[in-house]
Nucleic acid binder design. Structure first.
Length: 468
DNA sequence: GCATGATCATGC
DNA sequence: GCATGATCATGC
């Protein structure tokens, strides 16, 4: 089936919203019905299965397109690529995207010959027709999956600079002969994820090194596709009102932007930064330095710098004592006992957090008798692959213990495993339901303070950029 | 001294 | 009321 314009395609595709595919075919606007024929149906697959099962079903049974793996976009006449993205409901009822959106698989030997502008990524994924649906575990009854939201996302109009930088980061690594060291944490929006569960089998040659590397596909990182869903879900609320105009903000590399906003606070103590930025600064508030970070970055309380939000960049404050020591571990979000047992490592919250870019903002005590810390610069950081693998061991151990109902023997800080599990709640009465139906004290993953210490020890001395 | 468990102010 | 982003207090 071909469409004359993107508006027509979207109009047709939105028949799916709020329906299942089996229902939607009964509500197709009459003008489209003559567009496909019985002959098309004869070519459909009989069975759909595997990870792309729903996508294949959708493509054939609703859009009447034969499944293919061509490098052209699915609706090549409009340069629009069809992508299905599964949703899940969290315990608190929030709807969110289940996993990263996998795009084209690539070969290391091919991608090094491309430039961003001539890349397969650009020619295939500039415009995405996104179909967000509720995934049902262990079901292949794709015709009865409920579809929540359908919209077109113009990847390259929205985020082209950051995507280009990410693409270049990935390809530069392959060109350095480091394809085996690729990590989703290297990049902000676009990721290079491993493809193929069986790692032995998916090993590939890379052009500038003899070391075999796991096959990779480009993907929109989990946090990015989540943020796209949030944006489109909000757009849905005012689809019939005027669309807001693009603001045309000038894009800058993240480090330049951070220097621009943060250099002025270098060496200044918390209380004074609070005065300058008009922020509360209560010595009893444990988060008082963390609370300074948003105003320092020039963000309103409810404002998120687009790349921060979309790329899920984590901004964390780190206190350094007068003797150079980092005393405290770094906390992450609560472990949702009932959710974690359904997750795989690469779909997990902790993985998403650890493969983010981090901005560490340092606050250092100048003298051990001081009661305030001064801003001591920042670093942009992401976790090396080897450490990510260690974190995976901690995560899997934790998930397995939760599955077995063991809440007493999580990996602790003295195991020196980069990360550990520890309580995190309002008080001892902060409980959370478990998959066993019991209630246990709220916990979360922490990065060990020793690990943060290494990052502090290895940082290059902070130098404010000279302003022209 | 430091690992571990407990707890806190704040914003939404 | 609870998640967030942390630090505090203790006991070994």
């Amino acid at each position: 089936m071909e469409f004359k314009s993107r508006e027509k395609l979207l109009y047709y595709a939105r028949t799916l919203e709020g329906r299942t595919i089996n229902d939607a075919v009964n509500f197709i606007p009459p003008e489209f019905i003559s567009e496909f024929t019985k002959a098309d149906e004869a070519e459909y697959k009989i069975e759909y299965k595997g990870k792309g099962g729903f996508g294949d079903f959708l493509e054939e049974r609703f859009f009447h397109k034969k499944n293919d793996s061509e490098s052209r976009p699915d609706f090549s006449e409009l340069a629009i690529e069809l992508k299905a993205s599964p949703l899940k409901k969290l315990q608190d009822g929030t709807v969110t995207v289940k996993e990263r959106l996998v795009l084209n698989h690539f070969r290391f030997v091919d991608i090094v010959k491309e430039s961003f502008d001539t890349s397969k990524f650009v020619s295939k994924n500039a415009h995405l027709l996104l179909v967000f649906y509720f995934y049902m575990k262990n079901s292949v009854d794709y015709g009865n999956f409920k579809i929540d939201l359908v919209d077109i996302w113009d990847t390259l109009l929205r985020d082209s600079k950051q995507l280009e930088e990410d693409w270049n980061t990935i390809v530069a690594k392959v060109r350095r002969g480091e394809a085996h060291l690729l990590s989703e944490g290297d990049t902000v929006l676009l990721g290079a994820c491993t493809k193929g569960g069986n790692k032995e089998k998916s090993m590939q040659k890379q052009p500038y090194s003899d070391i075999p590397a796991p096959g990779r596909a480009l993907c929109l990182k989990s946090s990015y596709i989540k943020s796209i869903y949030k944006t489109l879900a909000a757009d849905r609320e005012n689809r019939h009102s005027e669309k807001s105009l693009q603001t045309g903000k000038v894009w800058k590399p993240l480090d330049v932007l951070l220097h621009e906003r943060l250099d002025r606070y270098f060496g200044i103590c918390g209380a004074k930064i609070a005065r300058i930025t008009g922020t509360k600064f209560n010595p009893k508030d444990k988060s008082r330095y963390a609370r300074l970070m948003k105003p320092m970055l020039g963000l309103q309380k409810d404002e998120n710098y687009h790349e921060f939000e979309a790329g899920n960049i984590q901004v964390k404050s780190v206190r350094i004592e007068a003797n150079g020591k980092v005393n405290e571990a770094m906390s992450f979000r609560n472990i949702y006992f009932k959710d974690i047992v359904t997750e795989d490592w690469e779909d997990s919250l902790f993985y998403e957090e650890l493969t983010s870019k981090f901005i560490f903002m340092f606050f250092r005590k100048k003298d051990k008798d001081d009661d305030d810390y001064v801003f001591d610069g920042f670093v942009l950081w992401n976790m090396p692959v080897a450490d990510l693998e260690t974190a995976q061991v901690v995560w899997e151990d934790t998930r397995n213990k939760i599955m077995n109902g063991d809440y007493k023997h999580f990996i602790n800080a003295s195991k020196k495993r980069i990360a550990h599990v520890r309580p995190k709640g309002r008080n001892g009465a902060s409980l959370m339901e478990t998959p066993q139906g019991t209630f246990e004290k709220k916990k979360c993953f922490w990065l060990n303070n020793e690990y943060i210490q290494e990052i502090v020890d290895n940082r290059t001395p902070f130098r404010p950029l000279v302003q022209e």
